[in-house]
Design a protein around this nucleic acid. Structure first.
Lengths: 230, 230
DNA sequence: CGCCCTGTTGACAAAGGTCAACTAGCGTGG
DNA sequence: CCACGCTAGTTGACCTTTGTCAACAGGGCG
């Protein structure tokens, strides 16, 4: 108990918080083993990592708030802040299944952040084909491909559709989904989807019939995706 | 090679696909060990699980498409389809960190789905405090709390705001975030947020000043969240 | 053969984005 | 220490986009 209360780390002792941190427990800090995550205090506005930068570290946010922003979306200004992480959240875990960071992470206030290198995590989490690691990677992979779909939320309907088509159907044939479902995924009504498809079709970017969509002109789609209006 | 081509499973042999499936590999099917996931063919429209139902199984989608829908959002009809999973995706993994399923999963076409009970997975992924398992749980936890925020996309601005406040600030004080950030999270412009706040304030649900928001009347917020208009 | 379901089209209303002017604090520099 | 200027936030007027309601068309299935 007394040991737990130690507020400043002892010369060689780990911070008390590690004894109650899930990562510290997993690392066996209580058994005097080292945790791969090293703590650091950050002030407001600190950039932990940038979107697109090669991923070298994974972060664990012990205390504070971190905003995740992503360029793609836009609207006014540059990036869209699409999530705020709190104490207890992992940041940048996507690099376990993806080369680069998918977001830019900025602290919103003073925060305590623990960082671990990709390699140390790689060694720490055990053999590549272990069950837990396999599930971790499957889960991260799904998550990575899912978040960008947030494109559902921002931008005008025709543009969202163009972006979705580029994501899903660059090769020509989008997945065979009922248009109702596509509309729901894109966060619009079937009627609106229908009109957006008609607009892209009349721009020559795609060919539509009652049940199929074919991409004809990827460049035209890119143009629509690019310049806001349509 | 010849063995791999075997299209129908041998009397006691596992399906050939298990040898190339990440889960099969993790389970060591090649070494004649059993995979906790049992395959099953499903036809279009099959319900794998329902939102809110106690979570008993985790699914791995080998082939096909599955729509995930969630009630909350609404608009016309009942649930919103917010994602479509493809072959190679895990379904229902949220039950490792949450009692109930968070979505309803429906196959969109004929699919091959492997299922494993929560207990078998629990045993399979090893000791509760192993590093990989800890990361898996952290990552799932974040994901679970994040997806509902898709509330960003649907519903009218005032309603989204009410829902967000209920999520984040049921205890009275929402996290101290710049209003710009809140607006981005909710997928609206600062101007719109300002107006939405003003509307809730004049309804007596919250108190707003230039830099803080306080929840006054949780019930009033619930009412706004409930009935679409505001 | 006819019904039903999905998707399409049109007219209309309203929510929210856009542009712009304005206010309140805060920090900086004189 | 005060004043100035800046940024974040607010408010107003207007206009585009999209949701809403409704009627209709094409295909598939009973």
């Amino acid at each position: 108990m007394t040991a737990l209360r130690t507020s400043a780390p002892q010369r060689h002792g780990p911070p008390a918080r590690c004894l109650v941190c899930p990562l510290g427990k997993a690392a066996g800090v209580a058994q005097h083993r080292a945790c791969p995550f090293a703590p650091r205090e950050r002030t407001a506005g600190a950039r932990l990592y940038f979107e697109g930068e090669p991923g070298t570290k994974i972060y664990y946010l012990w205390r504070g708030q971190v905003a995740l922003t992503r360029a793609g979306g836009d609207a006014r200004g540059a990036g869209v802040t699409w999530a705020v992480r709190r104490g207890g959240d992992l940041l940048g875990a996507e690099i376990l299944v993806h080369e680069q960071y998918l977001d830019t992470a900025v602290t919103l206030g003073s925060s305590t952040v623990c960082a671990a290198s990709r390699e140390s995590i790689d060694a720490w989490i055990g053999p590549p084909e272990s069950p837990a690691r396999t599930l971790l990677q499957l889960s991260l992979r799904t998550r990575c491909s899912e978040v960008p779909r947030r494109s559902g939320a921002d931008g005008k309907a025709t543009r969202r559709l163009a972006r979705w088509l580029l994501d899903e159907a660059a090769d020509g044939a989008p997945p065979k989904l009922p248009k109702q479902v596509i509309a729901a995924l894109l966060g619009m009504l079937p009627e609106t989807l229908s009109r957006a498809l008609a607009r892209l079709a009349s721009a020559g970017a795609i060919a539509v019939d009652r049940r199929t969509i074919r991409v004809i002109d990827v460049e035209a789609l890119r143009r629509v995706e690019g310049d806001g209006d349509a």
